[in-house]
């Protein structure tokens, strides 16, 4: 397989149900790839397999030619994969600042971190980051007190702090207002190029703003791949997912 991040005939079954069935696609470095498909198409499961949460029962996932399958989750993260979960996953009892500090994981060892106090190695950076997502006034607030949209942004900011080469985003705009979604689209367009992104989304307006290439999944398989225009015209995609109205109507 070629490509920066590549899935080669990857499958996984849960109790006999093949959630992902021989999925192959590859993403180039710096690309922002959108992954769409109806509910149960296996989009989240595909991300789960890339970040190690779910082990593929067959097939291989490569990052720059290196197989990720046999690695543990933290090793995959160290290899350069970051993940934002569908249900916002932050540390609710820790403050926003502490959340960003944890995510800023240049040093991962127990002994390397025991002598590090104050964590202000990159304090300005963290504060700029908080500003970027509009949380600069909430740095000392426990993450459990944030609104849903703010929690989404905190997790996105945490991924930026982690600074992985590949960022996997699972429905980043779920629960966001129109303005918040637009701001997120701006942010993603800035991340593009520096990071390689795979974004699972349902919001077609959002996809139109950020997407270069779209991969469509259906019943655990890749159904189609192409630009927004190509996907809109794709007969099978329309039948399976978009309906007759096309992307604009969805």
């Amino acid at each position: 397989m070629t490509g920066y991040l590549a899935l080669d005939e990857v499958s996984v079954s849960f109790d006999g149900f093949r959630a992902v069935d021989g999925l192959s696609f590859s993403v180039e470095e710096g690309e922002l790839r959108c992954l769409i498909g109806p509910n149960g198409a296996g989009k989240s499961t595909a991300l789960d397999m890339i970040c190690g949460k779910v082990r593929p029962t067959a097939g291989t996932i490569f990052l720059q030619g290196r197989a990720l399958n046999r690695l543990e989750e933290h090793e995959i993260a160290r290899a350069g994969i970051g993940r934002k979960f569908q249900v916002p996953s932050v540390f609710r009892e820790l403050t926003v600042r502490q959340n960003l500090d944890v995510a800023h994981s240049r040093q991962v060892g127990v002994w390397a971190n025991i002598a590090r106090f104050g964590h202000h190695a990159d304090r300005d950076g963290l504060e700029k980051l908080a500003e970027l997502v509009g949380l600069e006034d909430r740095l000392e607030v426990p993450a459990g007190h944030l609104s849903h949209g703010q929690t989404q942004w905190l997790e996105i900011a945490m991924l930026v702090a982690q600074d992985p080469r590949v960022i996997l985003m699972d429905e980043p705009t779920a629960g966001m207002t129109v303005q918040e979604t637009r701001k997120t689209a701006d942010l993603f367009n800035r991340l593009k190029g520096k990071h390689t992104l795979i974004v699972v989304e349902h919001d077609m307006g959002f996809i139109k703003e950020i997407g270069d290439v779209i991969s469509v999944m259906h019943q655990g398989r890749l159904l189609a791949e192409g630009s927004v225009g190509e996907i809109e015209q794709h007969a099978e995609v329309r039948a399976a997912y978009l309906g007759s109205g096309g992307i604009s109507g969805a």
């Binding site: 949460k53 543990e72 989750e73 993260a77 932050v90 609710r92 127990v110 002598a115 590090r116």
Partner: peptide
């Protein structure tokens, strides 16, 4: 008060999340 201590608290809060930032939870 060290970063290690912060990660321990993060583990208490949401163990699985910590792994995906590259920390070996078992070590901590």
């Amino acid at each position: 008060k060290s970063k290690t201590g912060l990660i321990l608290q993060a583990i208490r809060d949401h163990e699985d999340r910590v792994r995906y930032f590259g920390y070996d939870v078992a070590h901590y």
